[in-house]
Amino acid sequence: MRSFVYYVREFLRPEWIRKFFFARTAPLETPSYFKGYPTRTEKECTGCFSCMMICPAPGAIAVLRKKDEWGPEVYPGHCIRCGLCVEACPEGVLSSGRILDVTDRDRTAFASWYHLEVDDNLCMRCGNCCVSCPVNRQIDPQLAGTGTSASDEVIMRIEGGRVRILHMEKCTGCTTCETQCPNRAIRVARMVEGVQLPEAEA
C-alpha cells in the first residue's frame, strides 16, 4: 500500500509531467551511413553482373532479363543491406542512402574481375570449358565447332598440354565452364578490390 502511494506521488509531480509531455529531441534524420534495400534508379542496366558478383549474401540479388532489358532484382529476405552492390555498379543503376555521394566525395570505387583457376591435377584437358564458354563461342566459332583454337582472342584454350588462360579479363562470370567441367577442375572466382580513383585532371 505504501509503495502504491509512493508511486502515485512520484509520477504525478508536475515537473515530471511537464518533462514527459514537452520533452524535445533532435529531429529524426537518416544518417549518411544508413542503407535501406537497394532501389532502382532510372539508369539503364548493362547486364555486367558487377552487383551480383560483389554481393556477399547468397541469393540476395540477381540480374535478370525481362523482355529485352536486363535489370537487378533484390530479394529482401536475403539482403543484408550492406550496399556493396550500389557501390559496385558502374552505371548507378541502384541506389540506397547516400553511398554514392560518399564514394563520389572520397573518390573510391570497386574494381572487379573474375579469376579463372584450373587445377591441373583434376583437369583432363577435354576442352569442355573452352568450347562451352559463351564468350569463346562468340569470339572463335571454329573453336566452338571443332575444339581447335584458331584465335588468340579467346579467354582460354588447351595449349602446351594444359588449359591456358589467355584473356581472363573477358570472363563475364557466367560460370558455364565451372558447371560443365565434369571434374570440377576449373573455378571461377569473383575478385573485388576497393580503389582510390586518381584526381581528375584539371
Binding site: P141, Q142, G145, T146, T148, A150
Partner: peptide, 9 residues
C-alpha cells in the same frame, strides 16, 4: 576454308 574448318571433323 572457313566452312571446312568449322563443319568437318
Amino acid at each position: 576454308i572457313e566452312k571446312f574448318d568449322r563443319y568437318y571433323t
